[in-house]
Design a protein around this nucleic acid. Structure first.
Length: 454
RNA sequence: GUGCUUGUAGCUCAGUUGGUUAGAGCACCGGAUUGUGGUUCCGGGGGUCGUGGGUUCAAAUCCCAUCAUGCACCCCA
């Protein structure tokens, strides 16, 4: 062994057991998406950098994986920039493609490019990996899967409701207890209006978003450092410290933000969504959370975030409404709303809480032990019959030692092993061993089939 | 990009104030058992102690550098 092979930081291999479990998550999510009439699309792993840059803020640009151009790219760097080794300056000369950072921006690009083939509202889902050049840590990877559902080309708040229902269904099926928090960007903007700091709206949201992590004092301190007036801070403090149920919160804010232009709209929207949510059966009612802000700046209306109860994992699902995402690609006034399930974090939570059902962990149901050439030949048509009957069946490749074959079945969690040797061939029966109980009996094909199916 | 942590067998780790040939458990392979796994018993393979330099009679152990990893910040699924 010359050098131990390895994979890049923040990436992972998935072994069979993990893949079975991951596929269980993906297929559950997919089935729910389809139940609500969403259709799948895929987009390339790499996009033109021009599509990606500037869509996620300055921080986002830093976290984009950039792909080096082919050929002698150095020659294309203008003479005067050759000597200044500032990455920012030369990056656009040596890289024009990047790995996708999320699925929403590529989707917006897709919609603009295919606008004439699409009939709106367009409901799509997309399950693909995304890449971020972040420092990995718990629940954070450099390559991870997002499962996006979006509906675009429609302003109805019924779409927000639909997403809330999808969240409830998915986590219901996966049996993960969750807390769905919703807020509205317009409400946050309303707060900025109310305190007269609309210019610093972004700073305000970034600070508020940290409330449950760093506490009110540090949030206020951060705002103070950003130049917010003491009077503004008092108001922010008053709002953030308000406690109550959804209704009390909306009432409180209605009074407070009643005279603000955008805030008023936001309150109306969130009220509507909450009323909708009351009218359907949900396991967990969404909670109006004023401190939810979410970093992505393209959100303009509802914002949603889901966390797993009793798990320290950050959000496992999040999203919101964006009114003009396609505008930057030349198609204005197309409103959309969407959410993204973080499959990898969901996996981590389910693993931690032991939520994977037994049946996701087995593949092969029956293994035929291979005793030799004659026996092999005899078994092949039987194996074929088993598979035709829908039973996942293997014949051990080669007449390896019995111990080896049994160990193989054991390690692979195969519940039944069938032994066909001279005795069985002569008398036309099968010896079938239950690997769980160790019990062993002899029977004909039909009986065997029945036993395996049950 | 900033701060801290940890690098010893495939995996999880032990290894005393620096001192013989660096250990254990699990996993793997073989045997006890040529048609019986999971339990038991016996045996076996596997290590440039992350890498490079330094101190020393002597370094897994001390020092420096470097790389890798994990965690936290920033940000985020």
């Amino acid at each position: 062994m010359a050098q131990k092979p390895s994979i890049p930081k923040g990436t992972r291999d998935f072994s069979p057991m993990e893949m079975m479990r991951r596929n269980y998550i993906f297929s559950t999510i997919k089935s729910v998406f389809q139940l609500y009439g969403y259709l799948p699309i895929e987009t390339p792993a790499m996009e033109n950098l021009s599509t990606l840059m500037g869509k996620y803020g300055e921080e986002g640009d830093r976290l984009l994986f950039k792909i080096l151009n082919s050929g002698d790219f150095v020659a294309k760097i203008p003479e005067e920039k050759r000597n200044q080794l500032e990455s920012k300056q030369i990056v656009r000369h040596i890289s024009e493609k990047g790995l996708r950072y999320d699925l929403t921006v590529p989707f917006a690009r897709y919609v603009v490019q295919h606008r004439n083939e699409i009939s709106f509202p367009f409901k799509r889902y997309q399950i693909q990996p995304v890449w971020r050049a972040d420092r990995p840590q718990k629940g954070r990877y450099r390559e991870f899967f997002q499962c996006d559902v979006d509906v675009i080309g429609n302003k109805s708040l019924l779409s927000e409701l639909e997403l809330i229902q999808i969240i409830d269904d998915v986590f219901g099926k996966l049996e993960i207890p969750t807390l769905t928090k919703i807020n509205n960007r317009k409400v946050l903007y309303g707060i900025a209006e109310y305190i007269g700091e609309t210019e610093k709206f972004i700073n305000l949201t970034v600070a508020i978003d940290k409330l449950d992590k760093i506490g009110i004092d540090k949030v206020l301190e951060e705002l103070r450092n950003n130049g917010f007036s003491e009077k503004a801070l008092d108001s922010v403090c008053e709002i953030l410290e308000f406690n109550g149920n959804n209704e009390e919160k909306t009432n409180f804010l209605s009074d407070l933000l009643g005279n603000t232009e955008t805030g008023k709209k936001g309150i109306e929207e969130i009220k509507t969504v909450l009323v909708y949510a009351k009218s359907v059966n949900l396991s967990y009612e969404p909670e109006f959370d004023l401190t939810l802000a979410r970093g992505l700046n393209y959100y303009t209306g509802a914002i949603i975030e889901v966390i797993a109860r009793d798990a320290d994992m950050g959000s496992i699902c999040g999203g919101g409404r964006y009114d003009d995402l396609t505008g930057i690609f030349g198609l204005p006034d197309v409103s959309g709303v969407g959410i993204s399930f973080g499959a990898d974090r969901i996996y981590d939570v389910m693993l931690e809480k032991n939520l994977f059902p037994e049946e996701t962990q087995s593949g092969t149901q029956v293994l035929f032990v291979n005793f030799g050439e004659k026996e092999e030949k005899y078994c092949l048509p039987i194996v074929e019959k088993m598979r035709k009957a829908g039973i996942s069946t293997e014949l051990f490749p080669g007449a390896a030692k019995m111990k080896k074959q049994m160990t193989y079945a054991n390690n692979k969690n195969i519940p039944f092993v069938i032994l066909v040797g001279g005795n069985e061939m002569e008398n036309g029966f099968f010896t079938i061993k239950n690997m769980l109980t160790g019990e062993q009996q002899q029977m004909n094909f039909d009986k065997m089939l029945k036993l395996v199916v049950s």
